[in-house]
Amino acid sequence: MNATTDAPRAALDARILAATTERLGISPVQVVHSTGSTNADLIDAIVRGQAAHLSSLTCEYQSAGKGRLEREWQVPEGAALTVSIAINPNPALPIPALSWYTMLAALAWCQAIETQTDLTASVKWPNDVLLGSRKVCGILAQLASSTTGPALVVGTGMNVDQERAELPVATATSLRLASGQRISRSELLASYLSAFHGLDAAFRAVAGDAGAGLAAYGGKSLRELVAAKLATLGHWVRIEYPDGTSLEAQALNVAADGALEVQDAQGGQHRVLAGDVQHVRRSDGQYA
């Protein structure tokens, strides 16, 4: 890590990324200067049969990226990490296991942040990474049709070098703001790819069973690893549905399929699926 300076933002270092992917035995990272959406480009590559499992695409500037619920996401050039990774479930994973990859990616980002900084990261269910109560990363997983069947693209936008005025909302932060230091985007991305690769390999080794112990992680399951990082658990949350209705309940656990298990004030138990809700926010007004 380097102390914060006024030096220009460094471009991604292809040598660092190449050394990482060679060590992991996966396809080299495709680095482009700018694109509309890394997710859209990688989905197109999957459709054309040109993306292998764990193929990845990153860019210096993304002009038309979208998050969950079609929210637009743009940042200054060189200030963030925008990266998409292809997941081919065949033959190791059942299709339902793909629902875990949003949180698998969030967990990988937590590991990468904690490798490259002194910060502690956590996960806001279902698709954000937090530093304290502020969002530092958003994740969007999208299905695609490959030549061998369904596939998945997991896209993320990590705030790395933004100043406060460059962030879209008051509830966001960047690694530079949180740490007081300028972080190498290349080293951070290399750490994320390594963490993602390790979690993916362990998950595939247990055939996508989120409740099965992972040998490389002390016998803890993916579900346990995610739950240990979920800032949402234990808090009262307000769940907002697309039809305008809402539910206030306490977040208790994450289910075997990745659903959030909650209990309302009357003791009623509910399962909340990410695809069925518009927002999940803490009732005390905190973002986490």
Rank of each mutant, 00 (worst) to 15 (best):
R48K: 01
Q50S: 11
A51H: 01
A51R: 04
A51W: 03
A52C: 12
H53R: 02
S56W: 06
S56M: 12
C59M: 09
E60R: 06
Q62C: 07
Q62L: 11
G65Q: 05
G67V: 11
L69K: 02
R71E: 15
E72G: 06
E72D: 15
W73E: 14
P76F: 09
E77I: 10
E77G: 01
G78W: 04
A79H: 00
A80Q: 01
L81M: 08
L81Y: 02
T82R: 01
T82A: 12
S84Q: 05
I85Q: 03
A86D: 13
I87H: 03
I87N: 05
N88C: 14
N88L: 15
P89Y: 07
N90F: 15
N90P: 06
P91E: 15
P91W: 08
A97Q: 05
A97K: 03
L98C: 04
S99L: 13
S99C: 12
Y101F: 15
M103S: 08
L104Q: 06
A105W: 07
A105E: 12
A105N: 07
A106H: 06
L107G: 00
A108G: 02
A108N: 05
W109S: 05
C110V: 06
Q111W: 13
A112R: 01
I113M: 09
I113S: 05
I113R: 00
E114C: 09
T115K: 02
T115M: 11
T115L: 13
Q116K: 02
T117Y: 05
T120L: 15
V123K: 00
V123H: 03
V123M: 14
K124T: 06
K124G: 04
P126G: 09
N127I: 15
D128R: 04
G132W: 08
G132A: 10
G132H: 01
G132Y: 05
S133D: 15
K135Q: 10
K135A: 12
G138Q: 09
G138P: 05
I139K: 02
I139G: 00
I139D: 11
L140S: 01
L140D: 10
A141C: 13
S146G: 10
G149N: 02
P150W: 04
P150Q: 07
